[in-house]
Amino acid sequence: MKLEITDCKGIKMIALSGEVDMYTSPELREEMMNLIRRRTSPLFVDFSGVSYIDSSGIATFVEGLKGIMSYNGKLKLVGIPDRIMEIFNFSKLDRVFEMYGSIDDALNSLNSF
């Protein structure tokens, strides 16, 4: 897994690529929780380079969402590949997370309120 924290038009974004699994999830958790401790919102996560995610990765995002909701923050998942979307759907989490096809869609969602 490769993880990069970038600024996307002033918004913090975690850009992930590769495999998010039992061995790499702890690093993702640490980085995401650091941002959440600083009450980052909105937080974007770019999934477009992710080739695989297992249940530890999904659980890490559930933890992140729980943390971010504690201060009414927003976590937005972007560019989820179909294969990975299937797992979110199956876990009934597609209706729990805010998901967007592209970064532009996620940015537009910020302006729509």
């Binding site: 039992m22 061995y23 999830s25 702890p26 958790r29 530890s56 659980a59 876990s91 009934k92």
Partner: peptide, 23 residues
């Protein structure tokens, strides 16, 4: 098995367990 073979935080493991039980 997750506690035995990974270094995931207990809070993450508990979510994983609830997901598997729901499955």
């Amino acid at each position: 098995p997750v506690k035995e073979h990974t270094r995931l935080e207990d809070s993450t493991i508990q979510i994983m367990v609830r997901m598997k039980l729901d499955l």
